[in-house]
């Protein structure tokens, strides 16, 4: 994970890329050359099988990021690179959280799940796996509340974003 500078902010990029070997490495190199770490990365197919969509969250100096986006756009296999930070988008992440708990703790955890519209997707005598979707803050909050129980494992997808309305992301 990136070491965050005080003057940096999280940026949410959306890339449309050609499905060619090496495209991910080329993109990663543009970031690493400027000393950037990626917070998260999601690669997904699009309606057209020739292309993929990538959503990247990265922290850093905004001026350098503008430069990075231009250098991404310059890559032959990148069709489009856009910074959607601050635009009118829906953003979702998904997390799975495995909690070790005694049967008498379940009710409180289920109440939390209810509040955050999370669901339990696995339950045993001693544990449960909770699935939660939402924006970054919501998932952070749920995780924070669960920390008082024994969280034994935790995994989170990157952020997927889509522009609201008819516009294409």
């Amino acid at each position: 994970m990136a070491t965050f500078d005080r003057n940096t902010s999280a940026h949410c990029l959306s890339l449309l890329v050609a499905n060619r070997p090496g495209v991910l490495v080329r993109i990663a190199l543009v970031f690493s050359r400027r000393g950037y770490n990626l917070d998260s990365l999601v690669v997904s197919p699009t309606l057209n099988p020739d292309f993929s969509r990538m959503n990247i969250v990265a922290h850093g100096n905004p001026e350098i990021l503008v430069q990075i986006i231009k250098q991404l756009e310059k890559l032959v296999d990148v069709i489009q690179a856009k910074d959607h930070t601050g635009s009118n988008t829906v953003e979702k992440e998904l997390a799975l959280i495995k909690v070790r708990c005694k049967p008498e703790q379940r009710t409180e955890i289920l109440q939390l799940c209810d509040h955050f519209k999370a669901v339990t997707i696995d339950m045993t005598d001693t544990s449960m796996i909770i699935q939660i979707t939402g924006n970054t803050d919501k998932i952070d909050a749920m995780k924070h509340l669960l920390d008082k129980f024994e969280v034994v494992e935790y995994i989170r997808t990157g952020k997927v974003i889509m522009l609201r309305g008819e516009d294409i992301t």
Partner: peptide
């Protein structure tokens, strides 16, 4: 070769 030259080429093909 492709992997090692990613950062030094305008583009490459395998």
């Amino acid at each position: 070769t492709s992997g090692m030259t990613f950062a030094a080429v305008k583009h490459s093909f395998l």
